[in-house]
């Protein structure tokens, strides 16, 4: 399958040629396939934010290339601009970027920059608002009257309204309560299914990515040491822990149980799987 987004030997050095020079990415080969739900995980300063800003052309690589649907995004200014519309990026704490008088206008900012006609903008704004669960009457309110969680929904809707083929979200659930986390993750899943879009979820919470993504990419010190399905990645428990990432709590409990000699399955990282594994183990014991 042709990747929708791909980087080849992507490197980025900040403040090159000054005493403050530091490398953030080093020869990174990253791929995202159409329609997949991908997780990027790494602790603060690992280079994950730098990586995603390359994926929609906000940062220019100091080495290597970035391809969107097989085309170099820096080949021409038009290609770069197109990529910014096709690859939507929701930054961390996006609620701080709201500026318009009404929620409606703020969500319409992106589509309007794309040069769409009024009717299409209206359709997209209402649809995007629907995805994130904003009510009709909230559209005419000032975004600054809303609560923190609702502001974030507005900001996410602002990117969704551009109907990007790839939607990248940098820690979309940071600072939300558990109910808010669930509902935002649900909204993202809805968009994923409705548009068959590629989703890239950046997080530092293993729990969160473990139960949402199909494939996981670990970023550490500017390189990608591991990638694969969550269960493949979680096999590197000790190494992940050394990077300050760790594995989900459930996986840790079960790894420990196995170390103590209990016969339980390997790929356990959610409570449901844990329940099943415990039941299986008990059934096994009962049979003896």
């Amino acid at each position: 399958m042709q990747p929708i987004l791909e980087t080849k030997k992507l490197s980025h050095v900040y403040s090159a040629g000054t005493p403050f020079e530091r490398g953030a990415l080093l020869d990174v080969d990253f791929t995202a396939y159409p329609g997949e739900y991908l997780g990027i995980i790494g602790h603060t300063g690992s280079g994950k934010s730098t990586l995603i800003q390359h994926l929609n052309g906000l940062l220019k690589p100091t080495g290597g290339q970035v391809f969107f649907q097989g085309e170099d995004i820096w080949a021409s200014p038009a290609a770069t601009r197109q990529t910014r519309f096709q690859v939507g990026l929701v930054f961390q704490y996006p609620e701080y970027q709201l500026f318009e008088e009404t929620v409606y206008k703020d969500i319409a900012f992106g589509p309007r920059n794309m040069g769409l006609e009024e009717g299409e903008i209206d359709r997209r704004v209402r649809q995007a608002a629907g995805f994130v669960g904003l009510r009709e009457e909230q559209l005419e309110k000032s975004p600054f009257e809303l609560s923190g969680g609702q502001k974030r929904r507005v900001a996410i809707a602002g990117v969704i309204a551009m109907e990007p083929k790839v939607l990248i979200l940098d820690e979309p659930t940071a600072g939300l309560d558990p109910v808010g986390v669930e509902s935002i993750l649900g909204n993202i899943r809805d968009y994923h299914q409705a548009h068959n879009a590629t989703i890239i979820l950046v997080s530092h919470s293993m729990e969160e990515v473990a139960r949402t993504v199909d494939r996981l990419v670990v970023v550490n010190d500017g390189v990608i040491p591991y990638q694969g399905t969550p269960s493949e990645v979680f096999r590197h428990g000790p190494e992940l822990e050394a990077m300050g990432l760790g594995v989900p709590q459930m996986t840790r409990v079960f790894n420990r149980l196995r170390a103590m000699g209990v016969d339980v399955g390997r790929s356990v990282y959610t409570i449901q799987q844990a329940k099943q594994a415990v039941l299986d183990a008990m059934a096994g014991k009962g049979a003896e």
Partner: peptide, 13 residues
């Protein structure tokens, strides 16, 4: 810097 990037991601010029 952050806000500029965020608005550029929404097509601001």
């Amino acid at each position: 810097d952050k806000i500029m990037s965020a608005q550029r991601a929404r097509g601001a010029d």
